[in-house]
Amino acid sequence: MSKRIEVTDLNVYYGDFRAVEDVTMAIEPKAITAFIGPSGCGKSTFLRTLNRMHEVVPGARVEGEVLLDGENLYGPGVDPVRVRRQVGMVFQRPNPFPTMSIKENVLAGINLNNRRMPASEKDALAERALRGANLWDEVKNRLDAPGSGLSGGQQQRLCIARAIAMEPQVLLMDEPCSALDPISTLAIEDLMAKLKEEYTIVIVTHNMQQAARISDVTAFFNIAGTGSPGRLIESGPTEKIFSVPDVKATEDYISGRFG
């Protein structure tokens, strides 16, 4: 249920603009990897190359390799649709489908893949996903109400339920808590700690405490200046990055945020 990601010499472009330069790193399964770095350094861009969502932007392209347990996501003949079914994604702003009920939202991915699944099995799956996202108790009595009627934090957990209902290998999260209050944020952090037992999790965050609290590995990205590409400065065990990083810029960034 969880796979290792290996990225080799990855360059990411929007048209002629190189947004991310020469990233090489490994992302371990059953662990939380946090991406930190200043705004515009390409964290989201890099994250979106891991499930081939990057190429949805017109003119965007990628050079290099991303291996998911040895299989190159950018190999010839690989269907991006299949990649996205294995690598789930949660966005910065909660985005449940407004015309669907809570249950339909959770099953949205399943209904794409596996329409024939019997209704009872679908119900069981929806319950499992909602329990997995720590949302079941709050919505079990209104599964047929519109998903957009939930609070922001509940909507975000609904989106997580929607992603894990697909039983992906990897779960990517781009600042999943930045639109949420501290209580909802804690709920989602607890959830991530639980999910990492089953999934490879990658999270982008601007919240240093959050990265320190929940992640096992931290990767720091930076840019030299506007217009220049983002680079991976260093990555390593979170305790190390937050106490004795190898690079001065990492320390500056982290302490600047704390100071």
């Binding site: 969502m53 649709v81 299949r82 996205r84 789930g88 966005f91 449940p96 929607r162």
Partner: peptide, 15 residues
């Protein structure tokens, strides 16, 4: 149509 929801669908593996 909101980009947000289009991306949500694509990220679920929609064609």
């Amino acid at each position: 149509a909101p980009k947000l929801h289009e991306e949500a669908a694509l990220a679920l593996g929609a064609t």
